[in-house]
Design a protein around this nucleic acid. Structure first.
Lengths: 192, 192
DNA sequence: GTAAAAACCTAAAGCCTGTAGGAGAGGGTG
DNA sequence: CACCCTCTCCTACAGGCTTTAGGTTTTTAC
């Protein structure tokens, strides 16, 4: 019986692919084991428990998303950077629906504090530099952007991403334009 | 052996309360049955399956939220109505965390098309009337508002709602103010 | 009171999660 | 090559969840 010599990253990658293909709700230790052609109990050599498997997928998603955001915003500023940031998120959700879905579930504190999550935050803060936002308010602006983008994609989740709905896309464009206006008109006084 | 004479609404209400107390992830047919002191199989007289139980909680949450939004925005317009709408959502998420969490999961088409969901949409459209938004754009504006509010609350979910974090609250206020500005500066031409 | 409806139970099957202990594949060393 | 060690993977098992089928008992309606 030759060994596949699984590793944690391989297990998590298989889980993410399974989620993309079958939906996040189909993700289980057993399903991943079947995919890898081993018995479920074998996976506990690589991931502590089911929860750790899900956290692993979240972290992988954050890492991939971070890479895409980094590329998308490179060399851009202001509105163009904001649009690029937003579209990187949207494209990721479309191309990796299962992995993206993992990010909609509550993350543990390690995942929240992970380098991958920090990277996306850093990139988002960099995009804010294209707007006149008081330094003390940068965190608020970043949260607004993250909330709007992710909130929109989550609302859109009920629709089939593969079939782009024209109205939903118009709403997306309108939402990003609205975000841009909101950031462009950020109050300059510290009073809020 | 006296019968409790359960009904579907009673089962769903018990499920929502359980979710509030123990977290949405603790919600199962078995857990609800234990709470109601019956055997799990007994609940299938009242709900078709586990999925129907979850959909029931979503629908209950939409109904309750709709009532709160209706009260909150009554007699208000423009910015005041927007803030009231947003705060109704936030207060609901704080006071009924389990029921609110149910709304973060994909809903089936019946739930999406339910009268309760339609009510919230109608109320949201009414709030948009306080801004100069071309009629064709009203749906885009409503989606923006829903996305931002829910996106923000979802991001905040990792924190313990019971312990209000001052920075998160400032971000919330900043986000609603940003929404207000975005709505107030909505483009008047049909070009987009 | 009787009959029908429905709430609730037991039993069972199938699936999932996770632990414990063991087998054996693979790699390193002498 | 033989031997030893590590670690991947397996089997076995227990406990929990979901759901169906068939039956019992309580409630409702007449």
């Amino acid at each position: 019986m030759p060994r596949m010599n699984l590793t944690e990253p391989a297990v998590i990658a298989a889980a993410a692919e399974l989620a993309d293909e079958a939906g996040f709700e189909a993700l289980s230790v057993s399903a991943v084991a079947r995919r890898l052609e081993v018995q479920p109990a074998s996976l506990y050599s690589h991931v502590r428990d089911r929860s750790a498997l899900l956290s692993g997928v979240q972290r992988l998603a954050l890492g991939e998303l971070g890479g895409r955001v980094s590329q998308a915003v490179a060399g851009r500023a202001g509105s163009a950077a904001l649009r690029a940031l937003a579209d990187a998120h949207r494209d990721y959700a479309i191309q990796r629906p299962g992995a993206w879905s993992a990010l909609q579930y509550p993350a543990d504190e390690h995942t929240v504090a992970s380098p991958e999550a920090a990277r996306i935050a850093t990139l988002s803060i960099a995009v804010m530099r294209g707007y006149r936002i008081p330094p003390d308010d940068a965190v608020h602006a970043v949260r607004l952007v993250a909330a709007t983008i992710n909130g929109f994609l989550a609302l859109d989740r009920g629709q089939a991403f593969a079939h782009r709905n024209e109205s939903a896309h118009q709403s997306w464009l309108a939402a990003i334009a609205a975000l841009d206006r909101a950031l462009s008109t950020w109050p300059q006084g510290s009073g809020k």
